[in-house]
Design a protein around this nucleic acid. Structure first.
Lengths: 137, 137
DNA sequence: CAGGATCCGATCGGATACTG
DNA sequence: CAGTATCCGATCGGATCCTG
């Protein structure tokens, strides 16, 4: 029998999984999470639960297909909860789970970083694009 | 004509850019950054500069095409610096820029989160996949 | 060693049409 | 309202061959 607590096991997690390894399950999870729709959907639910139609309006330009697909993936991974309210018309609300909230703290930073540093990145891109082909530094 | 300084514009950045808007430049940047190879390449350079071949070994399973493509994108965005050492054979070293390091603090968390929470996510996936089709809650 | 170039199957993702 | 289903062009990304 094991005497380790869940907390102890959580602290050891770092040594067991390594996303640098192509066969490690964490690599696949990282691939799933590294998606702009995942980031936007999670951050959209940061402050309050939202309905499907509200999410679609908040995340401008997302197609119905991608929004549904993203929300299903998030639900399957235990990151958001889907609640169906039987009424006329039907109402479906999405909210963050505790697990999702822990990930939210990370992806929200990614979104903010993009918004805060886009100008500096663009400047770098312009410099890069303006240099002669095969530029010998 | 505008009288705002670059610094003033930078302080207003949060209110000027919004990744929720499909036409906002930060949306495209977020899409670029939301990539598993970007995350792995950046984190691989966290502690020290690495050569191309070293990166390829560290990031298991990455193809030559994707690694080159990823490094070019990171270089273009001003996140990593590429240094060519003329010798026989030639040596190319990649290192983090200050801008890249600020992003690293975020993406490293994403990688760690995947490694630390993969078990909980898998448990959620199993629960989700085991429920009957069209499960009426 | 550090790529560039090409081929090509697999997946992504938008548009459209339909449903309870 | 909240999806499902399908078509299909665009892009992704691995494999392979070639180069300074």
């Amino acid at each position: 029998m094991s005497t380790t607590t869940a907390e102890q096991r959580r602290r050891m997690a770092k040594s067991e999984y390594d996303a640098y390894l192509s066969t490690c399950p964490s690599r696949q999870l990282l691939a799933t999470l590294s998606d702009k729709w995942i980031v936007l959907a999670l951050t959209a639910l940061e402050t309050q639960p939202l309905r499907y139609s509200e999410l679609r309006r908040k995340i401008a330009g997302v197609s119905q297909k991608m929004l549904t697909q993203t929300l299903r993936a998030l639900e399957r991974d235990g990151l958001v909860e889907r609640s169906v309210k039987i009424s006329v018309p039907i109402s479906v609300t999405y909210s963050m789970t505790p697990l999702g909230h822990s990930l939210l703290r990370v992806v929200a930073q990614l979104k903010s970083w993009a918004e805060d540093n886009i100008e500096e990145v663009r400047a770098a891109q312009n410099t890069f694009d303006a240099r002669p082909p095969q530029g010998k530094l």
